[in-house]
Design a protein around this nucleic acid. Structure first.
Length: 722
DNA sequence: GGCCACTTTGTTTTT
DNA sequence: CAAAGTGGCC
């Protein structure tokens, strides 16, 4: 068979990785070096040339999006369906394994997945039940602690501490885990940890999968945590081949347990592994690459890698110093407009920022100028309140012991089961080690509740039981429809008088159509409902946005990883914002911020524009910042400073003269706006920084490109708007 | 049970 | 500053 198409168009390093003989391999893939391409071709090579069955290959990614893209590209390249091949996320594969081996993993057959929101609620209740002060022991921190321990493979009994604070955290961890186990609930970290324990402790299961998966490929390996890596090692056994792809310079998730060190550990644990570096970049201009290389070069302990391109130098990186975040936004808008006038598409433009709070001012600027935009990172479909309510009913149908679902819907819509009644149920559940459902049943049958509460609770139990009878042998979409109607959920939202309620009803209907289009795989004795519930938990779905609209893309630097755009704005490059205040002090954290900067810069294909604001409002307070250290790490030869902002020498004195809000409008009546570009006959071009007074006596401060900042009387200055 | 006023608390995100 | 959460009151 002619397999040359598998190597066509690849560079030498890529070919080497694709066609490597059977051995372990570390592919150090720089940004834009064709990493996914190599993975996809490697999989096809193993099947077509090495004659491996698609079933003997395991490919793991972090996000559903990456997994879907990989599967799609493999299918396209090979021209055949690889549905049965295991390509998925760590969590998706863990779920699949636990469903198949629920008994060995010590789980009930109908276990449910707990998302972060559910986990938070359950923790809150657990902390309350332990009679701990909720102020002193916030559920958030407890969750953070528990997840971190699970990521490190630790159960409560493994944690030995004399620190009283940690002892309490372990106490919460233990109580929370007992609650999960009783209810058949598995949180995200638990999925991974359970599979790790399953493979570690069950020789039979482990050997089965070791025999099956001859080749294991892991994408974005720098993002793996301890437990994910030990999974890889367990599945690899002694005989299988592991290929990992990653980039230590793009490790930006250390704060959530990812261990870059895993790359070094891999080289230690797989001593025969071949290292292949993909350093040729096909994305950015040489200028952008050189600048990014310089920045990341300031980090220590790198595996070492230098991106290069045989492409053009391209334009210099623009650096714009704004006076405040409003003016930063105005400048960005003006540049986007210029891009658009030159024929550029809006969807080719990305605005990147360090934290979500920064998006607001940018958004306002775009809105004001009428430019279409799309913000990433909003609420996703299955995260919406009304959708979660409906799903909780479905979960309860599937598993009565699901305490998280029970608590969510027992009084939604309100049916007279208040906090008092629930308190009694919780008490009984704790005393008898029952789930909420069983405790509620006991309270009704043993008449432990007052008449009214008893009736209300009995009615709720009847609704759920009655729904089950109605749903027998019905298609999933009809079950969902029945749930919405019988529970009163739909009626509740329909009755609500707000603009929100309308979209909520729409979302509930959307949920029904989602169940209609959902195609169950019919796997290992799972009901369509069970499969759908897992799908809802593991893939929270896309945000509801018109992806096809030509719109500017706004997102955090983190969510930009893996994407590319012809024109990229990196905004808010100020000390304290980026690098973030939180990362100061710890060198490790600062290096992660620098990697984030590297990730941001390497998103840009043609043009990179970096902006910062001298002053920025944060929590209602105006703060002055120095430009980010990352700016000074870029050699000046690659930078074009659009405007040299004269340093504000006495910030507090200067600040008192600033005008905002209503007076700003009055100012614009004079014909000028802050941030506007103007021309003076003697001083040349400049930008309006500030003003004082109104009418003929008003003075205006202009920062001239050539001669710096000056105060001029508007009436005499003879300024022209550019 | 629902509404209003008060307090608190603010990185980065996927599963 | 503004959103989210809490607590008191009817």
């Amino acid at each position: 068979m002619d397999v040359s198409y598998l190597l066509d168009g690849l560079n030498d390093r890529q070919r080497e990785a694709v066609s490597a003989t059977e051995q372990d391999m570390l592919v150090l893939a720089g940004a834009g070096s064709g990493k996914t391409r190599v993975l996809v071709h490697r999989i096809a090579w193993l099947i077509e040339v090495m004659n491996y069955s698609p079933l003997s290959i395991l490919a793991v990614t972090f996000t559903n999006k990456a997994a879907a893209e990989m599967r799609g590209r493999v299918e396209k390249l090979m021209g055949r369906d690889v549905q049965r091949m295991w390509i998925g996320t760590f969590h998706g594969l863990a779920h699949r394994l636990l469903r198949a081996h629920y008994q060995d993993a010590g789980l009930p057959q109908n276990f449910q997945i707990l998302d972060s929101d559910d986990q938070q609620r359950l923790l809150k209740r657990t902390i309350k039940a332990l009679n701990l002060d909720e102020k002193q022991w916030p559920a958030k921190q407890a969750g953070w602690y528990i997840n971190a321990k699970k990521d490190d493979g630790l159960r409560p009994q493994h944690i030995d501490t004399y620190d009283p604070t940690e002892q309490t955290q372990v106490q919460i961890y233990r109580a929370y885990q007992e609650a999960c186990d009783r209810a058949g609930l598995v949180d995200f970290a638990e999925l991974l940890l359970r599979v790790h324990e399953l493979l570690r402790d069950n020789k039979h299961v482990r050997e089965h999968y070791q025999r099956r998966f001859r080749h294991i490929l892991v994408d974005e390996f720098q993002d793996t945590n301890q437990i994910q890596y030990s999974w890889v090692r367990l599945l690899a056994g002694k005989e299988n081949h592991v290929a990992i792809v990653g980039d230590d310079d793009q490790s930006i998730y250390g704060w959530r347990g990812a261990q870059v060190e895993n790359l070094q550990h891999f080289l230690r644990d797989f001593p025969n592994a071949q290292t292949i570096r993909l350093e040729q970049n096909y994305r950015s201009t040489a200028t952008i690459l050189k600048a990014a290389n310089q920045v990341i070069g300031n980090n220590s302990d790198r595996l070492g890698k230098d991106l290069w391109t045989d492409g053009i130098d391209g334009e210099p990186i623009s650096l714009y110093s704004a006076f405040n975040e409003q003016e930063e936004s105005r400048y960005i808008v003006s540049q986007i407009k210029r891009w658009q006038e030159q024929g550029g598409a809006l969807s080719d433009v990305a605005l990147l920022y360090r934290n979500n709070a920064q998006s607001r001012v940018l958004e306002e600027g775009l809105l004001y100028s009428g430019l279409a935009y799309r913000i990433y990172g909003g609420l996703r479909f299955f995260d919406r309140q009304e959708v979660k309510d409906a799903v909780a009913y479905l979960r309860l149908l599937s598993n009565r012991n699901d305490d998280a679902a029970f608590e969510r819907v027992v009084n939604t819509p309100t049916r007279g089961i208040g906090e008092r009644t629930l308190g009694l149920v919780r008490e009984l559940a704790r005393a008898r080690q029952l789930t909420m459902w069983d405790a509620a049943r006991a309270m009704v049958s043993e008449s432990l509740l007052s008449g009214r509460a008893k009736n209300a609770m009995a009615a709720f139990l009847d609704i759920i039981n009655g729904l089950e009878d109605k749903c027998v042998d019905k298609p999933l979409s009809m079950q969902t429809d029945l749930v919405l109607k019988s529970s009163g959920l739909l009626a509740m939202y329909q009755a609500e008088q707000s603009d929100k309620a309308e979209t909520r009803v729409e979302n509930l209907k959307e949920l029904v159509s989602a169940t209609e289009t959902f195609v169950p795989t019919g796997e290992e004795g799972m009901t369509p409902l069970a499969e759908f519930l897992a799908h809802a938990a593991l893939e929270a779905g896309d945000e509801q946005a018109d992806a096809y609209q030509d719109a500017v893309q706004l997102m955090t630097l983190h969510s930009a990883k893996g994407l590319e755009f012809p024109l990229v704005f990196m905004t808010g490059l100020e000390e304290g914002t980026f690098p973030s205040q939180m990362s100061s002090g710890e060198p490790g954290r600062l290096e992660e911020e620098r990697r984030l900067c590297y990730v941001g810069m390497t998103r840009a294909m043609e043009k990179l524009i970096i902006t910062y604001a001298e002053s920025r409002r944060l929590y209602g307070q105006e703060n002055f910042h120095t430009p980010s250290r990352f700016i000074s790490e870029i050699p000046s030869e690659f930078i074009h400073e659009v405007r040299v902002q004269t340093r504000v020498t006495q910030p507090s004195a200067q600040r008192s003269r600033f005008h905002t809000g209503a007076s700003h409008e009055a100012f614009s009546q004079t014909g000028f706006q802050l941030g506007q570009r103007v021309l003076h006959q003697v001083f040349g071009e400049g930008t309006v920084l500030n003003y004082e007074g109104t009418g003929p006596q008003s003075r205006i401060q202009i920062n001239f490109d050539d001669v710096g900042s000056k105060w001029l009387v508007v009436a005499y200055a003879k300024l022209t708007v550019i």
